[in-house]
Design a protein around this nucleic acid. Structure first.
Lengths: 195, 195, 195, 195
DNA sequence: TAGTAAGCGAGACGGTACGTCGGGTCTTCTG
DNA sequence: CAGAAGACCCGACGTACCGTCTCGCTTACTA
């Protein structure tokens, strides 16, 4: 029974949680991640700084939760066609990373994951790992159906799918944009993975 | 006449440049990128802060140059075998990103590129774009030799090659490591790209 | 009918009053007046802060009451000998100001009086004025007995008696201590006041 | 040679010292001692807080220096008449303690002295002790001239003179004011000290 | 006996100020 | 002039208290 802890004292105002996260996202959008200050978030939310630090132990933790509040739950499509499924997943991933607010935070989150920080680990476990797992299960299903070669290493396959998508997000500004990109990618991958 | 400007007064001590960059790399290694302070670098180098700012206009610029000093020049292999060439490029890319000192800066650099900052643009133009171009040229040569399908979109192909490598670097801590990873990747790609 | 107001609801726990004042004095002794915090007093008393503020409207008010609880009622000696009476009063005043707990608060109280704050006025009226009045009455009695010169300004005389005592308390740390001090003082004063 | 220390780096801007002290006095006058904040002083002086803390290690230290800048140097009068000298000293002391700006700080300073704090010790040594010493020397001279009884304890005499003055300052608000007070006091004292 | 109003411990709340740190600039003196 | 040293302004950091405001109890007087 983790939910029914004892409740001494005045309970936290849940509305305040929302106000803070919303303020954080606003500031994030306006001044960017590097210039985000707790004073600004507190002022915007109409809240004391202590109230923020009572909930999150660092600025980073707070930003994580703010961003996480934007992340839709991952749903795995299952149309039966591996080609269709993959294109859909790719597009969804792209949408998620390009989200108006959260999108600008994604690169920073990535660098946190790469640096192996506390924040990074948290984000990886909460967001990345489940999505990788879901994708792998989809590939396993296709493989057992005979839609993919049986000797294909699925872990590598996951890298081959998600790698280009993330690269496109991160380096999008220095690459030509191609509306048919997802299709070409999946075509290129499946060409070698089938039969 | 850019090289022979007039030289009134004391000339800059070129040894100081090196001392600063070296100190920056040391501090980088010890406290990480987030905690790197100019005061620390200046103290380590035995140099005044003004001397640093006379050379670079911001902390970020300095760090870029510090890291750049570690980056070997990109050489394109040309063994004639597209498979061998790709495996070699992949391994080299991996080594570069995993460099003891510079490696920890790479994720941050990536996020700068993604954010489209001044620093990011600078880095992209100096490092990423040339490497993408070289890789593309290699693929073009292979295509004209008939080693790759003539309808393969080479821009997408470059994404398919570099994407997974970068992903592996960034998310390496949350993925299983596979010593044969590069071979499997190239095999998986070429299977669909050839004949 | 001030005592029998209507009494709806639970009555105040009088034990709590004592617990708070005692805790306040303890904290006062340990960390000093400047560092005394309501949180500390509340924690020490095992009491909510609101419970304190229900009784006193400010920290200062509370401290006043805490200190007042230490102050013995002023009794005017009347031995018939002005010399004996004055020495006794002086010694009693010194003891009061040097009280283990309250003594350390006395200087602060003095500065409040001097600053004319609410707290200061309250303290002056409750403690200082009555004592000055009592002392003056004692001098008047002596004057009417002929023990003091009839042209002596008793208001000034009160200053001449209490001034040095308070000074001795306040600046005691930077003055030599003299066990016969009170006698010498009274001798010095009466020498000019009599006959 | 305390004055000619080595001088590496940019020297402190002495104008800044003055600006800070002046700002401190202004704020002191406006909001009082208790509400004086370093942020306010820094803002008023157009100075960073660090610049203040580079000069004084605490708010209290700074206030002391600010007030000290108002204190005229103590000069001992020597008219040859002990009566005239004493009245003059008393009036001067009163003026000093009632200074428009510094006067409000005096009571607080007294409580610091009484509490034996660092600040208090500093102030006592710099201001109080020298003045007591000067007064004692004046009395000694009078005693050797035969103007004062030879058996008078001068340390107690100093207390008898300064005590009432300080008391009058501290408790002035609760006492009647008397324009002839100083004369009456000196008369009352000397009556017993002479012949 | 039930209702009700206030007291109570606990602790969250919006604020203000704290003293420190770091960024990038400016100013001295020494080479 | 370059360079080392370090002072300067600014702004953000995370913490400590302030005095107030709920919470969910408990306690005693009232109906």
């Amino acid at each position: 029974m983790t939910s029914t802890e004892r409740k001494a004292g005045r309970p936290r105002d849940v509305g305040v949680d929302a106000a803070i996260l919303q303020a954080a996202l606003q500031v994030l959008e306006e001044v960017g991640l590097g210039a985000l200050s707790m004073d600004a978030v507190a002022a915007r939310a109409g809240v004391g700084k202590a109230t923020i630090y009572r909930r999150w132990k660092s600025k980073e933790d707070m930003v994580i939760d703010a961003v996480a509040s934007l992340v839709a739950t991952a749903e795995t499509p299952a149309t039966g066609s591996i080609h269709t499924d993959l294109v859909m997943i790719l597009k969804r991933l792209g949408v998620f990373m390009s989200h108006a607010k959260g999108g600008s935070v994604f690169p920073w989150l990535v660098s946190e994951v790469a640096a192996g920080s506390e924040v990074g680990r948290h984000y990886a476990e909460a967001v990345i790992v489940p999505r990788r797992r879901a994708l792998k299960q989809l590939l396993e299903a296709a493989q057992s159906r005979g839609d993919l070669r049986s000797d294909l290493d699925l872990e590598v396959a996951v890298d081959m799918i998600t790698g280009p998508v993330i690269l496109r997000k991160l380096f999008g500004s220095i690459r030509p944009n191609d509306p048919l990109w997802e299709e070409k990618l999946v075509d290129g991958l499946l060409a070698g993975w089938q039969s």
